[in-house]
C-alpha cells in the first residue's frame, strides 16, 4: 500500500498547520505530569483555535472528561489518545465514499460561495475520476464571474478533458446542453460548475435551484451528487453555508479545500455535530493529485498528532 502511506504523509504535511497549532501546544502539554484543569483549558484553546467552534469544542471536552473518568485516565499521553478517539467518533459519520456505479452518465453538481475553490476542485476531481478509469465531461456553468468559463476551458485544454461552454447564456442552459452531450458521447461522469454565491443572495440561491431542476429534466435522476465546496479557512460561517445550501439543494456531500495552508478546517467538527453532510474529499495541496477521499481516523490523527 505505497499509495496509502504517501497519502498519510501528504495528509500529515497538509494538516501540518493544524498540527502545529494543536500539536505544538499539545506536544508541550502532554509532556506534563498530570491530567488537570489547565490541561483541559489548553485543549479547549487548541480546539477553538482550529475553528472547531464553541459548541463542538464543549461537546468534545465533555465527552473527553467523561471518558477520562470512566477509563481512569491519569497520564497526559493517554488523554491525547482519548481526544483523538473522540474526534474520530465525532467525524466518522462524515465518512462516505463517492459511489460511481449508480448511473451513467453520473452527474455531479458543484456549489459554493465565491472563492471557495470550486473550479480548482473540479479540475482535481476530474483527474481523480480519470484515475479511476472514468471518462469525464465538464460543464462551465459559472456564467457570471468574469473569465470563469475561460478558466475551466483553459484547464480542460491543459488536461485533455472536454468542456461544454457557451458564450453568455445562463447556467441552466449550459448544463442542459452538457447533460445531452454527456449522454450522446457515452460519458461516465459529468461535472457541472456553478457560479460562486453567498446564501444571503436569495435570487442566486433560486437560480441554482433552477440549475438542479434543469439537470433533472435533461437526465432523469440527475444530479446524482450535489457537492458543496468549502474553504478550510472558513470560520463558523462554514456551518451556515452547509445549512443554507443543504436547504436549497439537498447536499449529498462536501469538499473541503485549501488544507495545505495554515488553516485547520476544524469547522468540520461543528458540521459533524450540527449538520452531518458527508465529507467526500479534502484538498491538501496545489497539485492535481492532492484531492483525497476523507478518512476520519486519519483526519483526527492529523489534527491531534
Amino acid at each position: 500500500m505505497l499509495a496509502a502511506t504517501s497519502w498519510a504523509a501528504r495528509l500529515r504535511s497538509g494538516l501540518a498547520r493544524t498540527r502545529a497549532a494543536l500539536g505544538g501546544g499539545l506536544g508541550a502539554l502532554f509532556g506534563g505530569a498530570a491530567v488537570d484543569e489547565p490541561l483541559y483549558e489548553e485543549l479547549e484553546a487548541a480546539l477553538l483555535t482550529a475553528d472547531c467552534g464553541v459548541e463542538a469544542t464543549r461537546t468534545l471536552l465533555a465527552r473527553l472528561r467523561e471518558r477520562a473518568r470512566r477509563e481512569r485516565i491519569v497520564e497526559p499521553p493517554a488523554l491525547k489518545r482519548a481526544l483523538r478517539e473522540e474526534l474520530r467518533l465525532l467525524l466518522a459519520p462524515l465518512e462516505k465514499p463517492l459511489d460511481l456505479t449508480r448511473d451513467r452518465p453520473l452527474v455531479i453538481m458543484i456549489a459554493g460561495v465565491n472563492g471557495s475553490g470550486k473550479t480548482t476542485s473540479i479540475g482535481k476531481l476530474a483527474k481523480w475520476l480519470q484515475g479511476q478509469g472514468r471518462s469525464v465531461l465538464l460543464a462551465a456553468g459559472d456564467t457570471f464571474r468574469a473569465a470563469a468559463r475561460e478558466q475551466l476551458v483553459a484547464w480542460g485544454e491543459r488536461n485533455g478533458v472536454a468542456v461544454i461552454a457557451q458564450k453568455g447564456g445562463d447556467a441552466a442552459a449550459v448544463v442542459f446542453d452538457a447533460a445531452a452531450a454527456a449522454r450522446a458521447r457515452g460519458i461516465d461522469v459529468l461535472i457541472a460548475d456553478t457560479a460562486g454565491r453567498l446564501p444571503t443572495q436569495l435570487h442566486l440561491m433560486e437560480e441554482i435551484r433552477k440549475v438542479k431542476r434543469v439537470l433533472g429534466k435533461a437526465l432523469p435522476g440527475a444530479p446524482h451528487e450535489i457537492l458543496l465546496v468549502l474553504d478550510a479557512n472558513t470560520g463558523q460561517n462554514g456551518l451556515a453555508q452547509v445549512r443554507a445550501f443543504d436547504e436549497a439543494l439537498g447536499l449529498t456531500g462536501l469538499v473541503l479545500t485549501k488544507l495545505d495552508g495554515t488553516a485547520r478546517g476544524g469547522v468540520v467538527c461543528a458540521i459533524a455535530r450540527e449538520r452531518p453532510v458527508p465529507l467526500l474529499f479534502i484538498g491538501v495541496g496545489e497539485g492535481i493529485d492532492d484531492l483525497r477521499p476523507f478518512d476520519a481516523a486519519e483526519f483526527a490523527g492529523a489534527l491531534v498528532d
Binding site: T49, G115, N233, G235, A263
Partner: peptide
C-alpha cells in the same frame, strides 16, 4: 481578507 475567514486570519495577517 474574506469576512468569512476563521481563526487562522490572525496567522495569515501576521505573516
Amino acid at each position: 481578507v474574506d469576512a468569512m475567514q476563521g481563526q487562522d486570519a490572525v496567522n495569515v495577517a501576521r505573516i
